[in-house]
Simulated assay, not measured.
Amino acid sequence: MVHPVGLAGFLVAVLPLIATPGASLALLVQHVTDGGRRRALPVVLGTVTGLYVHAALAVAGLSALVMHSSVAFAAVRLVGAVYLIGLGLWTWRSASPHAAPAPRRRPRPRGTDSVYAQALLANVLNPKAASVYLTLVPQFVEPDRPLGGQILTLATAHALLIALWLTAWTFLVLRASHALRTPRFRRTAIRTTSAVLIALGIRSAVA
């Protein structure tokens, strides 16, 4: 277990990173706008799963290997950048006025899996998310105590905080549901999301 003071310090330190708009928030706004509150859950779960992937890699030491190898780090960064840019372009295309509108109640059995995978990959392929567990987490763990349990505790606290943040944004988006349902606003929201994803990808590529 992590000391309560250390846990509180970690949450204070990671909060600005969570509050900074990123791929997870962009995906959340897009999918909630498109499909309602049910589409928020897979985004949250995908993001949280990504955090645990980074935590597991940190425990295993694999992330440290990537971060200390400039070639490996550049490869991970570029893969993540390409994914974000590709996702942004695909999202922009989905807002085309020439695209056929989706039926209101047509079942989409694989939709939830697709949203979950998008959120998961957006987090896993983000090297800056991995760097949290390599630069920030070590400051709040005690080397003379089991490392795995401490990192798991911090990752769980991190996951709960980001889940609360995304849930709060879900309710904010739903409050404006009457506006979000208009085709014009929907296209604007999707294209804004696309621009954010592309910008994040470019920033990751050139950072």
Rank of each mutant, 00 (worst) to 15 (best):
158 H>W: 07
141 V>S: 04
141 V>H: 08
205 A>E: 02
180 L>E: 08
154 L>V: 13
14 V>Y: 02
21 P>G: 05
86 G>N: 13
185 F>V: 15
171 F>A: 12
199 A>Y: 05
168 A>D: 04
105 R>W: 11
15 L>N: 01
24 S>P: 07
191 R>T: 09
2 V>S: 10
153 T>G: 02
7 L>R: 07
15 L>T: 15
18 I>A: 06
167 T>P: 05
174 L>Y: 11
138 P>F: 08
55 A>P: 08
18 I>H: 05
76 V>T: 08
9 G>H: 03
110 R>C: 01
118 Q>R: 12
148 G>I: 04
203 R>F: 13
201 G>M: 10
134 L>F: 06
4 P>A: 00
120 L>K: 02
181 R>F: 03
72 A>W: 06
202 I>H: 03
201 G>V: 14
102 A>K: 13
107 P>G: 06
63 S>W: 12
116 Y>C: 01
96 S>P: 06
200 L>E: 04
69 S>V: 08
41 L>P: 01
171 F>G: 13
131 S>R: 11
23 A>S: 15
12 V>T: 15
8 A>P: 03
19 A>V: 15
73 F>T: 08
135 T>C: 05
58 A>F: 08
46 G>Y: 04
130 A>T: 12
134 L>N: 13
34 D>N: 13
44 V>M: 15
26 A>R: 05
90 W>E: 05
73 F>S: 10
122 A>C: 10
121 L>W: 07
167 T>W: 06
58 A>V: 07
52 Y>S: 05
124 V>Q: 09
188 T>S: 10
136 L>D: 04
94 S>K: 14
59 V>S: 10
29 V>D: 00
42 P>N: 08
81 A>T: 10
198 I>R: 00
61 G>N: 09
200 L>P: 04
100 A>S: 15
48 V>W: 02
